[in-house]
Design a protein around this nucleic acid. Structure first.
Length: 102
DNA sequence: ATTTTGACTTAAG
DNA sequence: GCTTAAGCCAAAA
């Protein structure tokens, strides 16, 4: 835990089912602040590990893979999502079929 | 308390 | 597809 908001973001992130992805804005909305997408990203930056919080399942609003500090960065993130069965559209995630639906 | 920064988003060129 | 610009939020300095 780093801060209350960050804690909430982690909790939301852990709820993302395998093979699905959620956008920063979507998680922000779950946390109670639909406009805190940026803060969500800041929280993710603090989270160094995968098994604890699947930050690799969190993508930008258009499905683009941004950030990620582990492994080879974006490249690693893409590989992981692909391995989980997430549908990809070139460099982006095919949100139409892989976006998490609450 | 104020400023800076950033894994964001949308709009516009 | 990429860069700028403006908007909003939270954590860190």
């Amino acid at each position: 835990m780093a801060s209350p908001f960050t804690e909430t973001v982690y909790k939301a992130t852990r709820q993302i089912p395998k093979g699905k992805v959620a956008t920063y804005a979507q998680l922000a909305r779950m946390c109670g602040n639909p406009k805190a997408a940026r803060a969500v990203g800041a929280a993710m930056r603090t989270n160094p590990d995968i098994p604890k919080t699947p930050c690799h399942r969190v993508v930008a609003s258009d499905g683009s893979l941004t950030g990620y500090s582990a492994g080879f960065g974006i490249k690693t993130k893409r590989e992981m999502l692909l391995a989980e069965g997430v549908s990809f559209k070139g460099t982006k995630v095919n949100l139409a079929v892989s976006q998490w639906q609450k």
